Amino acid sequence: MSTTRRQAIALAGVFQAAATVDSLARTGQHDTTAWRTLIDATLDTEPADFESVYGGQLSHLQLGLDTLRRTLDDPSHNAVIARYAMAMLMLMHRLRRDKRMMTTLGERLARVRQQAGHFGPVHENVVASLGELYQDTLSTLPRRIVVQGDPGLLQMPMMPERIRAALLSGIRFAMLWYQMGGRRWHLIFRGGLKRQLDELTR
């Protein structure tokens, strides 16, 4: 698999997280496969290989691939989702410079993985722990992500935790994108990215 293709897949993960955040905030619903893929990727901090991050099936990232492709075709489409995705990339860069926070995330994710081994990865206790981890770490960085949506839904039990868990997963895929050589200028000169997405979404 080429480096550019890996970058496209990782960036699709970021957009899948952004689309999930938007759907939760506006409708209270989420795509089951997309959600499970995001949570699994967050918990798997030491994957056997690149494909393991998303379960080795591109269909697991279909929401992200479709959303990213539509956004590149028409930047005005899904402007809120695009804003969330770009904010996740910016937060990832801030996180990379904070070694203490990186260590904290690694240590606490190890404990959440143990919790997931007992309850299952998408159990509410696990999601609550992931949401709390995001709140204690990434949400303390400058330019925190402000989520727009239905005020009633945003105040429902577990909704803040679900949204924060999805944001954490977006940061995880943003980090993967960076590790694969992804840089923000690639989003400006995006011909190679669009070609890869054309092939991935055929």
Results as ranks from 00 to 15, higher is better:
residue 87 A to P: 01
residue 147 V to T: 08
residue 7 Q to F: 07
residue 40 D to W: 01
residue 138 L to K: 00
residue 11 L to F: 09
residue 134 Y to N: 00
residue 13 G to I: 09
residue 136 D to E: 15
residue 98 D to K: 10
residue 196 Q to K: 12
residue 128 A to S: 12
residue 165 A to L: 08
residue 140 T to N: 03
residue 189 F to L: 12
residue 196 Q to A: 12
residue 134 Y to M: 01
residue 42 T to I: 04
residue 27 T to Y: 02
residue 149 G to W: 10
residue 2 S to W: 04
residue 85 A to P: 00
residue 148 Q to V: 02
residue 172 R to C: 03
residue 159 M to Q: 15
residue 174 A to M: 02
residue 201 T to H: 02
residue 141 L to Y: 04
residue 175 M to V: 00
residue 149 G to P: 04
residue 98 D to P: 02
residue 50 F to S: 06
residue 2 S to V: 00
residue 187 L to Y: 09
residue 80 V to H: 06
residue 55 G to Q: 07
residue 70 R to A: 13
residue 131 G to Q: 02
residue 88 M to N: 05
residue 49 D to S: 12
residue 116 A to G: 05
residue 15 F to M: 12
residue 200 L to Q: 08
residue 4 T to Y: 07
residue 154 L to P: 09
residue 186 H to Y: 04
residue 161 E to W: 01
residue 100 R to Q: 12
residue 1 M to G: 11
residue 147 V to W: 05
residue 198 D to V: 10
residue 37 T to P: 01
residue 143 R to Y: 11
residue 116 A to I: 03
residue 50 F to W: 11
residue 23 S to L: 04
residue 171 I to Q: 09
residue 31 D to G: 11
residue 126 V to R: 02
residue 56 G to F: 03
residue 36 R to S: 13
residue 200 L to D: 06
residue 38 L to P: 08
residue 148 Q to R: 14
residue 23 S to T: 13
residue 45 T to H: 09
residue 181 G to T: 13
residue 40 D to A: 15
residue 94 R to Y: 10
residue 145 I to H: 05
residue 13 G to S: 03
residue 75 P to A: 11
residue 69 R to W: 06
residue 194 K to C: 07
residue 116 A to S: 06
residue 145 I to T: 08
residue 83 R to E: 13
residue 191 G to Q: 13
residue 122 V to K: 04
residue 200 L to I: 10
residue 73 D to S: 12
residue 53 V to L: 13
residue 18 A to S: 12
residue 72 L to D: 07
residue 170 G to D: 09
residue 102 M to T: 14
residue 31 D to C: 06
residue 133 L to P: 02
residue 193 L to Q: 11
residue 30 H to Y: 14
residue 18 A to P: 08
residue 74 D to R: 15
residue 82 A to L: 12
residue 125 N to V: 12
residue 196 Q to L: 01
residue 198 D to P: 00
residue 70 R to P: 01
residue 188 I to E: 06
residue 32 T to D: 13
residue 179 Q to S: 14
residue 141 L to N: 05
residue 61 L to H: 04
residue 157 P to L: 08
